[in-house]
Amino acid sequence: MEKRVLGIILAILGIIGLIYAGASFMNGSGGTRNVKSILVFGALGAVFFAAGIGLVKHTNDKAT
């Protein structure tokens, strides 16, 4: 159960990171600092989201 909760938390953090990267992309001025933040938040968001979905998908529930 704990791995599934951690997976959900990671997936939510990944979604937040991807949304922030998208909002920064839409509102950015195109400077070097903006491009770096978009890349960092987009990459971290994608990694967190993929890790979270993987944990939720591959965690087996035990019948107690």
Rank of each mutant, 00 (worst) to 15 (best):
M1V: 12
M1E: 10
M1K: 11
M1C: 10
M1S: 11
E2S: 11
E2N: 10
E2P: 03
E2G: 07
K3D: 06
K3F: 10
R4N: 13
V5I: 15
L6P: 01
L6C: 08
L6V: 12
G7E: 07
G7Y: 03
G7H: 05
I8C: 08
I8Y: 08
I9K: 06
L10F: 07
L10S: 05
L10K: 04
A11W: 03
I12N: 09
I12C: 14
I12M: 15
L13C: 13
G14E: 02
G14C: 06
G14F: 00
I15E: 09
I15A: 14
I16S: 09
I16V: 15
G17K: 02
G17F: 01
L18F: 01
L18R: 00
L18Q: 01
I19R: 05
I19M: 09
I19E: 04
Y20D: 12
Y20R: 11
Y20H: 14
Y20F: 15
A21L: 07
A21G: 09
G22R: 08
G22E: 13
G22P: 07
A23N: 13
A23F: 13
S24A: 13
S24D: 10
F25A: 07
M26F: 13
M26G: 05
N27G: 11
N27P: 04
G28M: 14
G28P: 06
S29K: 15
S29C: 09
S29N: 15
S29I: 14
S29W: 15
G30Q: 08
G31A: 12
G31I: 12
T32W: 14
T32A: 15
R33F: 14
R33T: 14
R33Q: 12
N34F: 08
N34W: 10
V35Y: 07
K36E: 08
K36G: 06
S37A: 12
S37N: 11
I38R: 01
I38C: 06
L39W: 05
L39M: 06
V40Q: 02
V40L: 06
F41Q: 00
G42F: 04
G42L: 06
G42Q: 05
A43R: 01
A43E: 03
L44S: 03
G45S: 02
A46M: 05
V47A: 13
F48K: 00
F48E: 00
F48Y: 03
F49H: 05
A51M: 11
A51T: 09
A51P: 01
G52P: 00
G52V: 00
G52F: 00
I53E: 03
I53K: 02
I53N: 00
G54W: 01
G54F: 01
G54S: 04
G54V: 02
L55V: 05
L55W: 05
L55P: 00
L55T: 03
L55H: 02
K57Q: 11
K57F: 10
H58N: 15
H58A: 09
H58R: 12
T59R: 00
T59D: 01
N60V: 02
D61A: 09
D61Y: 11
D61W: 08
K62N: 10
K62R: 14
K62G: 09
K62M: 12
A63D: 10
A63C: 08
A63L: 10
A63T: 08
A63N: 09
T64I: 14
T64Q: 14
